[in-house]
Design a protein around this nucleic acid. Sequence first.
DNA 1: CGAGGTCTTGAAGACGATCAACAAACGTGG
DNA 2: CCACGTTTGTTGATCGTCTTCAAGACCTCG
Lengths: 254, 254
Amino acid sequence: MPVQASRQADADRGEPGMLLMRALRLRDVVDASEERVLLDSLSGVREVPDQADIVREGQKPGESCLIVSGFAARYHLLRNGRRQISAVHIPGDFVDLHGFLLGHMDHGVKALGDCTIATIPHQRLRAISADFPHLTRLLWLLTLIDAATHRRWLFAAGALPAAGQIAHFLSEMNARLTAIGLASGHRFVLPMSQAEIGEAMGMSPVHVNRTIQEIRRAGLVAWRGQQVEILDLPQLQALAEFDPTYLNLEQVPR
Amino acid sequence: MPVQASRQADADRGEPGMLLMRALRLRDVVDASEERVLLDSLSGVREVPDQADIVREGQKPGESCLIVSGFAARYHLLRNGRRQISAVHIPGDFVDLHGFLLGHMDHGVKALGDCTIATIPHQRLRAISADFPHLTRLLWLLTLIDAATHRRWLFAAGALPAAGQIAHFLSEMNARLTAIGLASGHRFVLPMSQAEIGEAMGMSPVHVNRTIQEIRRAGLVAWRGQQVEILDLPQLQALAEFDPTYLNLEQVPR
DNA sequence: CGAGGTCTTGAAGACGATCAACAAACGTGG
DNA sequence: CCACGTTTGTTGATCGTCTTCAAGACCTCG
């Protein structure tokens, strides 16, 4: 039984920018005019099927994509066909807000399961940056949180053993999904195969499998299909050396 | 004989924001009023000795630091005392521009060798974001390039073997240092011990040493003390699957 | 000239990758 | 509703990379 089916359906059918607003209001006050200009800028809502590219590497898109429902991953390809996932995005996240200022996309973005996205033209972002300094800082903040998350992943990849790395990923997903209301009681849906988790953690699918079994046996998580339940959050976070500071989940003036 | 002693000395004695301006002008046109407000905002020039903290984790600084000369590293600490370096910064880089919008620092920054820094009060950054939209976008861009670099490191850490990872680091440093004029003929100074490189690559000092020997024996680099010379850039970059796109070294309107 | 840091080397062992095969779950169409 | 094919998850065995521990060589600088 999917934990957040009803909530997610709301977001899906209703205002596409609902979860984005929630993500922003977790971090600062957003006034009505800021909300209006941002929501009015969203358009081009469309469905993307599982595994399909949302943005392709090398492309120079004229708009940025917001996830309305579903998950997405940024990925990098190697010559030998191997793939490295450098970020996982959830509803309410921009997957390529940075495309606004960067030249060409240095990586692709693909859908993890079917998802719905909305777009905002770079033209509008430029206009916002001219007329709404505070809102601009909030959008900037979102990209800074992306960067902080990258650093955290670097920390996990470089300094933690496999179990710690996966524990960190789960702790992070739990924190982020809880923040926007897509997890409750430390239960959430994670639409990624073990192979994809391996691509994100930089480890082989086989090793992902054995590591998951390890943390399952330790009683830290229950995990059936896409349903993840964290049974012992304190221990999981200890294993991951998880500290949610980097997610900036506090409402302060920015 | 240090390649860039004279140039660096210029930057050091002269305008502290010189290399920052160079970094910006590599990416877009900066007009005189933008240059003036940015340079006028820099103050608090000070020396930081080797290994000293520039910013401490958990701190909430009221200003951001620009490197005038020398190198610095962002690092994360583990409970067991291990340290992970998530970014290396060179002259002209802000090391904590993100501190302007983020709450508390989620990592520390330390000097790699003696360095000189200048600071810009967050108050000034906020004023710039209100009055200079284009300059604001350029500062935002700098943080986006940081994030792109993080992603590239994640790619290298997760998908490349040790030699490729170190080759990637050298390719990146060469590209960045060349861009701001601190490397020429693919020669540059890298003020990091092999142990520190290990902290950045997520590998043991011993393995760093053996890997360096490997790429030395392959004739890709000459490396004596802090002097690095890349002998076969194409092969080094091939080994690293290096593509400089992510550094955004082209002048386009942002 | 001595001392401390850095680099280098060797040997042993742990962790994770790879290869291969099988089981289970899932979705689809008959 | 069952049969089937495909994807995902699971297990075992072997191999390679990288870690750890330990010691010695080399610098550099006071």
